[in-house]
Design a protein around this nucleic acid. Sequence first.
DNA 1: GTCTATAACCGGATAGAC
DNA 2: GTCTATCCGGTTATAGAC
Lengths: 248, 248
Amino acid sequence: MTPATLPTTRTKKGEQTKAHILETALTMFRERGYEGTTMRAGATEAGVSLGNAYYYFESKEHLIQAFYERSHLDHLAACADALENEVDLRNRLRAVIRAKLSTSMPYHRFSGLLFKTAADPRSPLNPFSDESTPLRRESTELFAEVVRGSSARIHPDLELHLPKLLWIYQMGIVLFWIHDTSPGCDRSYRLAERTVDLIVQLIKVANFPPMRPITRLALNVLADLEDNAALSATPDRSDQRQDSDDEE
Amino acid sequence: MTPATLPTTRTKKGEQTKAHILETALTMFRERGYEGTTMRAGATEAGVSLGNAYYYFESKEHLIQAFYERSHLDHLAACADALENEVDLRNRLRAVIRAKLSTSMPYHRFSGLLFKTAADPRSPLNPFSDESTPLRRESTELFAEVVRGSSARIHPDLELHLPKLLWIYQMGIVLFWIHDTSPGCDRSYRLAERTVDLIVQLIKVANFPPMRPITRLALNVLADLEDNAALSATPDRSDQRQDSDDEE
DNA sequence: GTCTATAACCGGATAGAC
DNA sequence: GTCTATCCGGTTATAGAC
């Protein structure tokens, strides 16, 4: 799918055009929102024709996919410091979630629309889609790093699933944030703060003998999910293509 | 907004027309999917003009709102029996979640699109919107009934929040189900089965003394959320209207 | 063969006549 | 309440230019 980047020929001819279109679009999304930015306006603003914009981006949604990727890089950069210097699990996780919110703030309005398309199983944008696999893997890898670099003693079976769980947890926080209209999204930050504490506590007690049966039950559910598809990071369902909605 | 139904004059003039349009649309959604059903086709099939359809339903999405309501009634009917005759919390909850999936099955494809719009904070469809408040209240009330009629001994503070938590849990299951492509959606049923067990276990141990600090922490988070808006069933933010996406 | 542009098409939504 | 005529924006077909 994604061919290796050629040595010196990178940014060949239209690579710049593509980048420019994306840049323009992202700016406009920030300023006028997603729906407020028409493909026509975006193309014009970028100095290209409508058809040309579609040459580089299959659909308007694919601009969002590009946004996701950039957004993730911002996120990585924003929490790199904490991940290097902090060993306490709670602080690490907190820094990562905070960074997620902070880096997303400029796109608060935009992100609503984003989640909208993200929830559609047929959209290439949805976080569980094949097309999102690489990014999903990178995102869970971030949480793997959160766990790995921490001083916390974690049940090995749990540690296996923790990155994915934390990734889903982050999605929950983001979903809340999207609906958050409090000034500065303070409520989201507070929720994040408190739920991080809660999660860290839960991780600790998972080891606690009387909790073991429940922990085991939970891990079984996760293992079961892993065996199949859907939430798995290694999907084996490249054959299932639902192209159209019609069937007549 | 919704005026009380007048005594004898119900089904006045176009009430039937409205009902007929909805009926037609729902059938077509089931048969051809949401996107596969154009407003034009729906109107034509129902024997009215496009403009007329829009007279009764503000937007295509508003047809979904109507679907939600019907869907909830189906759900209620499907679990009424179990709720009357069963006292075991696990069985009650299991019956309700199972019923949710079963009654939703005919709309599996449709529901994907449904969640799509549901995730948009600006959509009247989103489960947290003012417009959805009545239905949200009814849905959580169902889970309140699940808890209330059970023989389980539940920490009073927890019992207060449990209905809403279970409602959110159900949304999670539905979200999984939407992405579930396994035959008969078996994976969703199994996930539901197992997570119901898990939840019931967690409710039990919440009372367990060593778990108390964590339970308290969790309840604090919930109480905090309740004090503000967003997930609350009593929104005090009727002043925040985000009509358009443009701002130039 | 890589890029760019113009002219449609299609479907959700609105305006305004009857 | 019901219609027709239009708008508007995502998307596609297609024809050329480099």
